[in-house]
Design a protein around this nucleic acid. Structure first.
Lengths: 196, 196
DNA sequence: AGATAAAACGAACACTCGTTAGTAAAATTC
DNA sequence: GAATTTTACTAACGAGTGTTCGTTTTATCT
């Protein structure tokens, strides 16, 4: 019954997914081979299939973990007693933090979801669409209440989200600009553009 | 001496690159095969090699065309007699326009440059780094002259550029939000976040 | 300890990949 | 119209793909 734990509480499957996330980000899902991955795990390619079912199962695990993290946080924020503007700031900060703490995972979820097989692809896109719609609604409410300037909500959401996902470029120059400086500056920029 | 022109002034090589840009965007460079491309061009895969030298030559052509377009425009703006803020607005608008008019090309240049072979990869990254540094300098000057709020210039550049590159998500909902509305709203958002 | 389950292995399968060689068809030049 | 160049074709190569098979090694449980 008991499973092998390679280190602490992580199963070998978790190790595989973690190594894969680094590899998928570096080379892209398509260009990263199972033999590549196996070498990083320290095992032969065939042995991987004792722990996973397919290459794309790894991608699914990564993409949906990220999607669920964002969705959970959104729901928590939505039911909080804050202004729409403050809620947006919380969400923006969460996105930035996720981008910094779970860089590989978020990056892959952002860039490699195309390679998801059906029906997971449609599922993923549906979830993303709903998430964005919720953010749009939040901004629309902020405008109605006079907290935000009269901007097209969906455009604002698009601008916001892609601005944040661009932190990937920063990841290599993190010595020059420390994380908290980056976060505060981005929030300043992005929230200021929303304020009335 | 005279070459065949498939349509108007475009050589067959141009046709191949154009079809490839659509394919590379849809499937990604790695997942798009030469046989795929050949089918879209209406020819056998081997025949492509009468017009191009390799698959990655196509990628090079696309990436460097886009990079040069942006660089040319930047140099033109730099020598114009405008305020730093106005210059930034011109650049932002140009980026948005490029994203709308040359969607496939810009998208590929943004997302598939990783697959460039050396030494083109290093070349490309150098060019991009210089471009971003120029934008940073422009913003720094805007801050010095009191036109912009005191924000970390490099963070602002990162935020700006990636916000714009996110228009890709909008491309499918262009019926709901017309191009000029998108452009004006994005400019409003992004410039407002810069203003003092 | 022996029995049982889990994990690793080498080899192979059935493909697909970018690309090349050799040749036939088509277009251009003279 | 013949000669020449350009383009497209079929066939194939060698390498790499994700994955499966049958077996052996390793770990866990009684």
């Amino acid at each position: 019954m008991a499973k092998i734990r390679s280190k602490k509480n992580s199963s070998k499957k978790d190790v595989i997914i973690e190594k894969a996330s680094k590899l998928f980000r570096e080379k892209g899902f398509g260009a990263a081979s199972m033999r590549d991955l196996a070498e990083h795990v320290g095992v032969e390619a065939a042995s991987l299939y004792n722990h996973i079912q397919s290459k794309s199962e790894i991608l699914q695990a990564i993409c949906f973990k990220v999607a669920n993290d964002f969705l959970s946080h959104l729901e928590a924020v939505q039911s909080a007693p804050e202004s729409a503007l403050k809620k947006m700031e919380l969400i923006i900060r969460f996105h930035i933090r996720m981008m910094m703490d779970q860089y590989e995972y978020v990056y892959i979820s952002d860039h490699e979801w195309r390679h998801l097989p059906e029906p997971y692809l449609s599922n993923f896109l549906n979830q993303r669409r709903n998430y964005r719609r919720s953010l749009s609604d939040l901004i629309a409410r902020g405008i109605d209440r006079g907290e935000m300037k009269n901007i097209e909500p969906y455009v604002a959401v698009l601008t916001l989200l892609s601005a944040i996902s661009g932190i990937e470029s920063w990841h290599r120059s993190r010595k020059i600009i420390p994380p908290d400086v980056l976060e505060d500056n981005m929030v300043k920029y992005l929230i200021e553009g929303l304020k009335k």
